[in-house]
Design a protein around this nucleic acid. Structure first.
Lengths: 208, 208
DNA sequence: CGTTGCTTTGACCGAATGGTCAAATCAAGC
DNA sequence: GCTTGATTTGACCATTCGGTCAAAGCAACG
């Protein structure tokens, strides 16, 4: 019963083109701001043709959001309670930053959804997202209790990692406006900065 | 020639109601996603009545964005080259966080504008925003060179302050979903966390 | 080459949207 | 209470939007 089993070559190609176009448009305009014409044009199809592949605008959006949270949380899932605490967190930061660099549209799609009050993924936020964060927060708290990292609020630590890594994707225009054309790619220096930032936060000091 | 000089009491009241309603709707739906009916309803006026006070949807949006950047940058302007470096930065973080707590809709309005590619304030970003940041970045670089704070990229430092403080306004729904109902107000703990974070980053270590 | 099923399109529809306008209502000073 | 100007409204309009549908085009296979 694989949904992709009975797909023509044309079908897979056009579905992909539509999802790609939808991602581009939704991530910039939000759901309400996006129009089917914009998406159809970006996909190189006529509007009725687009609606031959997806039953509605909503359907495209749903498919896009569906896979999103999962991919987005993968780096956090990989945080290993058995590894070296500081390295684990820094590796998480690095993976998250790479995600922003490689999939900025996905990041902006997510940002739009949250800004609008998460009408379509609110349940997943207080469900699987909260569960995962609770679990990993406990791990971090454990490390702190064992003196392997400094005492920090694990929730705010995670929030700050999200905020800073996604900032480079979501506020891309602002970052480039401020840095100017000469510093076109902010990611190398951002990576170094974030590394320093979280290392200095987590590295245990001379305990009093 | 003060624009407010010839305003009736009713005018000032209704204009304010409209701007307030517009802020609420635009900050959640973005410009394209917002409708005049939503704004009119939120302002307690009929749509034609609303258009008696503002000539168009765009006009409301423009007025809202106009004052925004200025208010938003005030805390950074207050960063004093003559003060104690670490204290100055930490005070900046605190002021910025207060802005997020007290004016979350303004923060989201700004976020929406940037997400959409800053079509209306792009010029101000590479203009006055860049100028101000360049100036303050130079101040921070000076502090680092003098050994008063640790060596950090001043631009990324500023980005990280923006990202983390605004995160609590823009991603409010997500923050609350993750923290759950028992930790309703994240701001006190966020303030403490950010204080620790940036203090540990900036405090000069035993220089090698 | 003809049939069958997949794909594409032009024409169309109802609803929503931004905006206009003339007429009605209201408030305030005389 | 009457007049004048500010305010409010209902009716209306053109455009855009999401979506439908029947018919046309096309590819593949016998």
């Amino acid at each position: 019963m694989d949904k992709t089993a009975t797909r023509t070559r044309i079908q897979t190609k056009n579905r992909q083109a539509i999802l790609d176009a939808g991602l581009a448009v939704f991530s910039q305009q939000g759901f309400r701001g996006a129009t089917l014409d914009q998406i159809a044009k970006a996909a190189g199809l006529s509007r009725p043709n687009l609606l031959y592949y997806f039953p509605s605008k909503e359907a495209i959006h749903v498919v896009l959001l569906a896979g999103l949270l999962d991919t987005w949380l993968d780096p956090l899932r990989a945080l290993d309670a058995g590894g070296n605490p500081v390295d684990e967190v820094l590796a998480y930061v690095r993976r998250k930053l790479e995600l922003s660099r490689d999939f900025p549209r996905e990041s902006r799609l997510f940002a739009n959804e949250i800004l609008q009050g998460a009408p379509r993924i609110g349940a997943a936020l207080s469900g699987e997202l909260k569960e995962l964060v609770d679990e990993k927060a406990a791990v971090i708290r454990g490390w702190a209790a064992a003196g392997q990292i400094a005492e920090v609020d694990p929730y705010h630590l995670i929030f700050s990692i999200w905020a800073m890594t996604q900032h480079y994707a979501d506020f891309d225009v602002q970052v480039h406006a401020v840095l100017g054309p000469e510093r076109a790619d902010p990611y190398p220096s951002a990576g170094a900065y974030l590394d320093t930032l979280f290392r200095s936060l987590l590295t245990p000091r001379n305990v009093t």
